[in-house]
Design a protein around this nucleic acid. Structure first.
Lengths: 187, 187
DNA sequence: CAGGAAGTCGAGTTGTCACTCATCTTAATC
DNA sequence: GATTAAGATGAGTGACAACTCGACTTCCTG
């Protein structure tokens, strides 16, 4: 599906990788508003080179978003067991504080037309975690995937914009986890 | 505390009000990124007039943020009773969908240096709702104000960016409310 | 109703950012 | 190592947004 075209020259491959790494750092620090110039400087490359590899800024953004999504999906895939879903929440929230791009990615995940396939994969991965948890009884059966995604997005957004410290993060997640867990029956 | 200066001329007062109304609409629709030109056009006023009243775009933003905050505080103040806090959550979330500025306001509330006083007042108002709920036992006693604010900010952010419909909004809030309510003991 | 201060107007200035392209450089191939 | 096409370079272009300022208009006061 991804058009290959002729193979890239060695220096071009190197530069492409550098640009992607630089973009990830810069956008993580300053959000999608950061200028292409900053990315070029950080990559140690002229601005024209950035535009040769990614004809528009949106293309560049889409590329790193796809990268981040892929990692998130992998992370979700490695988790499992009764508390996998909770662990995923915890990790994402912890990351959110320092990574604007992760958060902006998730923010757009709900609405955007871009990257629909990768987003679907993430939903599937989270869906698997949810199903596992519900099978073992660590999450109430009536909970559905959409609200889990909604909570994930919300809490990530909140953590970024609010700059939560560790203890606030824990207490906030605790409320959500309590909402997800079954009420302990009179055994 | 608010410097008055000499009283405004009649037309100046009228224009000031128009600009504020226009700014509220425009920023609600398009977020803080909307241009000052758009505000001026909508207010039926030249751009220079906008800058005479609000020397900086940030000044204009701060002014409408303060307005919105004041309204939010009033709304929180009118609510009361065992479910006042839940009602406040529900209303805010419902508003968030269409009002970028409300959301951006809350996003900055946690970090920003601006408007600290008004934000404190909002926290106080929410604190009162929390205390009332805890007094009557509709919210668990160990819940503290910071995580309630954090949840409020999160869910508002999420609702905006995710474009939730009514039913998703309800289901998402239901999880949070369950997390806040005490587990029903064996009566 | 005149005088003048307060207010309005909007073309122009300044700065930034995405994007282009003519020129130079370099990796690949024989 | 000569050839050449792919790639890198960075000054330049156009668009747009915040903000300025001198000329004009309107409200107020006596």
């Amino acid at each position: 599906m991804p058009e290959d075209g002729p193979p890239l020259r060695a220096d071009a491959q190197r530069n492409r990788a550098r640009i992607l790494d630089a973009a990830e750092t810069v956008f993580a620090e300053s959000g999608a508003g950061a200028s292409t110039e900053q990315v070029a400087r950080r990559a140690g490359v002229a601005i024209g080179t950035v535009f040769r590899h990614f004809p528009t800024k949106d293309d560049l953004l889409a590329a790193i978003m796809k990268r981040l999504l892929t990692r998130l999906i992998a992370e979700a895939g490695e988790l499992s067991g009764p508390d996998g879903l909770f662990e995923f929440f915890t990790r994402l929230t912890a990351q959110a504080a320092g990574k604007r791009s992760v958060v902006e990615l998730l923010a757009r995940a709900g609405v955007d037309v871009q990257l629909p396939q990768a987003v679907t994969h993430l939903e599937q991965a989270v869906g698997t975690l949810l199903a596992q948890a519900q099978a073992v009884g660590t999450v109430r059966p009536e909970i559905q995937l959409p609200e889990v995604m909604a909570l994930l997005i919300s809490v990530t957004q909140g953590a970024l914009h609010g700059g939560w410290d560790t203890s606030l993060r824990e207490r906030t997640l605790a409320v959500i986890f309590t909402g997800l867990r079954p009420r302990p029956g009179p055994h």
